[in-house]
């Protein structure tokens, strides 16, 4: 028991440095997912029939194929096929980001569709272009409404990021397993990694709740 604790204590800084890698992967993926997701959602709501169809296929694909398979496909397959040299870290961010963009687009789409559509008309009537109206009127409200869904998506991407271990990214899970297989203290190390993930989930969702409260529109209950 005490032995385990000593190992754990010694490994903790190493795991915590891994948490920085985890945070970097998740932050990158969430941002990529956010930027792509917003565009996909806007395209899916306001785009023409063909655009909507293409986006529909994109969403269907990235929601239907397992993360691990996509990681292998991109890292071992596409990267060498297209002769681009990307690190496992970068590929993990991209793949997690693409998958997340598919899920995030559905969050944003739902939020856009829940907005009263008259506001778009009013913006047009003032002489705004559709692009301006969407950027200035629709999206600010969409993003506010999307925070709870986004927070949920964050906790999923965070946990999924542990799969990046399969490509050898030295995030928390990889480090826990690395130490475990040398010290034979598997259980304490896995539990430590698990709890670190829980702490990151807690901190992230808490932060987003504070943000949600901060940007809440007074008098508006949705």
């Amino acid at each position: 028991m005490t032995e385990s604790l000593i190992v754990l204590y010694g490994a903790l800084p190493y795991l915590l440095r891994g948490s920085l890698v985890t945070i970097a992967v998740v932050a990158g993926a969430m941002m990529l997912g956010l930027v792509l997701g917003i565009h996909l959602a806007v395209g899916q709501v306001y785009g023409g029939r063909w655009l909507r169809r293409v986006i529909g296929v994109y969403v269907w694909f990235f929601r239907g194929v397992p993360l691990l398979v996509l990681l292998f496909l991109f890292y071992f397959g596409l990267c060498s096929l297209l002769q681009i040299n990307l690190s496992a870290f970068t590929v993990s961010v991209i793949v997690l980001g693409l998958i997340s963009s598919a899920y995030q687009s559905q969050i944003f789409r739902g939020a856009i569709m829940s907005l009263p559509q008259g506001q778009l008309k009013a913006a047009r009537a003032l002489g705004m272009s559709d692009g301006k109206a969407i950027a200035l009127i629709i999206l600010p409200q969409t993003l506010r409404l999307s925070i709870p869904g986004w927070s949920n998506e964050y906790s999923i991407v965070l946990k999924d990021s542990a799969v990046a271990y399969a490509l050898g990214v030295m995030e928390m899970m990889a480090r826990a397993h690395f130490v475990a297989s040398r010290t034979y203290e598997h259980l304490p190390l896995y539990f430590a990694a698990g709890f670190l993930f829980m702490i990151l989930t807690y901190l992230g969702t808490k932060g987003l709740r504070i943000l949600e409260e901060k940007v809440r529109i007074p008098g508006y209950s949705a």
Partner: peptide
């Protein structure tokens, strides 16, 4: 529920497969 939704699935699988033999 808190723990099993909080731990990544990979971590859980490793616990069952690589961890349990230790007990």
């Amino acid at each position: 529920v808190l723990v099993f939704r909080g731990f990544p699935l990979v971590v859980q699988l490793f616990i069952w497969y690589f961890g349990l033999p230790h007990i």
